[in-house]
């Protein structure tokens, strides 16, 4: 590989173990190339959520290194926090129930000091504007800012959470099973939204998922993780189109698909 674009975020041979437990990650290397969505695929207990926590700087690897823009990741670095934002699985747990959506979405702006210095009123106005813009990008009306989380449906909550993640203008979104808690019809729309944001906002989406359909729709690259190790990685088209590892093949065969459903018979 020559002249590959530099990775924004990369794990280099990382290992991790919870206190007194077996290692959950062993010598895992993945890298996030700008513009190429990356999928971390695997089943429960594979270690993919732990890997995401390392990439988010919420935990330190026991061995190996996590790199942001080529340098060792520093979780206190505001540039890093601004550039890498998470989206969670459960939209009921990811929004503070006692704050209005506007405050929730503007939190990164205030905490990261992204508002232009000026009077309190001017800053508040700027925040409101940028919140409205973020809400618009995720397909929510501007008056959503005044509502509390419980006044939204599950899909709308996930949109609020995505608005919070993009308001700081990040380069990478790390999404942990972002649609698995949603109904099917909502799921399609949130997948479309994430795909659209990748194009319009230039963010690279990293998706942790067990759902290969979501992966195929959103990510150019795929890493398959089984019991803490990457067993296969490469372009999604190659990994899913011509899987070389038996585990990948088994995963692929297990996905329930209408196109293969037993009870539908030949068209």
């Amino acid at each position: 590989m020559t002249a590959a674009p530099a990775a924004v975020l990369a794990a280099h041979e990382v290992g991790y173990a919870y206190r007194g437990g077996r290692p959950v990650l062993e010598e895992v290397s993945v890298s996030v190339t700008p513009g190429r969505g990356l999928a971390l695929v695997g089943e429960s207990g594979a270690g993919k959520t732990t890997l995401l926590r390392l990439l988010l700087g919420l935990a330190r690897p026991a061995s190996g290194r996590v790199l942001f823009d080529g340098a060792e990741l520093n979780p206190r670095d505001r540039a890093f926090r601004r550039a890498v934002q998470p989206v969670f699985q459960d939209p009921y747990s990811s929004l503070d129930p006692r704050r209005r959506a506007g405050r929730i979405v503007s939190e990164p702006l205030r905490s990261l000091g992204l508002l232009a210095p000026g009077s309190r009123a001017a800053r508040r106005e700027e925040a409101a504007e940028r919140v409205a813009e973020a809400l618009r990008s995720v397909g929510l009306p501007a008056d959503a800012a005044r509502r509390y989380p419980h006044e939204f449906s599950g899909g709308q909550r996930q949109r609020v959470a995505i608005a919070r993640a993009i308001v700081s203008g990040p380069r990478v979104l790390l999404a942990d099973e972002p649609v698995s808690a949603l109904d099917v019809t909502t799921r399609v729309r949130v997948v479309e939204l994430l795909g659209g944001l990748a194009e319009t906002h230039g963010v690279t989406v990293v998706v942790v998922s067990h759902d290969l359909a979501v992966v195929a729709a959103l990510c150019a690259d795929t890493a398959v993780i089984e019991r803490g190790r990457v067993v296969e990685q490469g372009r999604t088209a190659d990994v899913l189109g011509a899987p070389s590892h038996p585990y990948t093949r088994r995963l692929l065969d297990s996905v329930p698909r209408l196109s293969r459903a037993a009870r539908l018979g030949p068209p």
Partner: peptide
Amino acid sequence: AQDYITAARTSGTSWPRIVAEHVLPN
């Protein structure tokens, strides 16, 4: 244990502010 605390941390919110803005109100 809630995800909104993690979200606050990844937004660069300091612990004292997390206590004041998220923990105490809840």
